[in-house]
């Protein structure tokens, strides 16, 4: 499942990290993956697509995202109920904001994230 989206690591170096079998992730329930000390929230949607975003809410008060409710490719943030499009990282109206998204793909049932 290729997500052709903007990565959060804009400093040039990109690395691919293998997060293991898809069954490391429950459908529609997020999981935190720690890469180089940074928390990324990884989501497996009902159609077995994968998405990865920074585990940090764009809401001014911050907080995690991994525990939100997933519907289609939208995430409802767990603390303030902001609706976020996982494909673009854009917060949906009437709220405004953006969270960094990372390209993620599945090969032979293994999940790889570009970081």
């Amino acid at each position: 499942m290729n997500q052709d989206t903007m990565g959060g690591n804009k400093m040039g170096r990109t690395q691919t990290v293998n997060m293991g079998h898809i069954n490391n992730f429950l459908p529609q329930i997020g999981r935190v993956v720690v890469i180089e000390g940074k928390e990324v929230a990884v989501f497996r949607t009902s159609d077995d697509s994968f998405y990865a975003v920074d585990n940090s809410s764009p809401h001014p008060k911050g907080g995690p995202l991994a525990e939100g409710i997933i519907s289609g490719h939208y995430l409802y943030d767990p603390l303030y109920d902001w609706k976020i499009d996982l494909t673009t990282g854009m917060v949906q109206a009437p709220d405004q904001g953006e969270v960094a998204v990372y390209p993620i793909r599945v090969e032979h049932d293994e999940v790889h994230i570009e970081f």
């Binding site: 690395q15 691919t16 990290v17 293998n18 997060m19 293991g20 490391n24 992730f25 429950l26 329930i29 999981r31 935190v32 993956v33 720690v34 890469i35 928390e39 990884v42 790889h112 570009e114």
Partner: peptide, 13 residues
Amino acid sequence: ELLFSSLNPTENG
């Protein structure tokens, strides 16, 4: 495991 612990993968690329 899946609900409460985070994943700490190692780099491979």
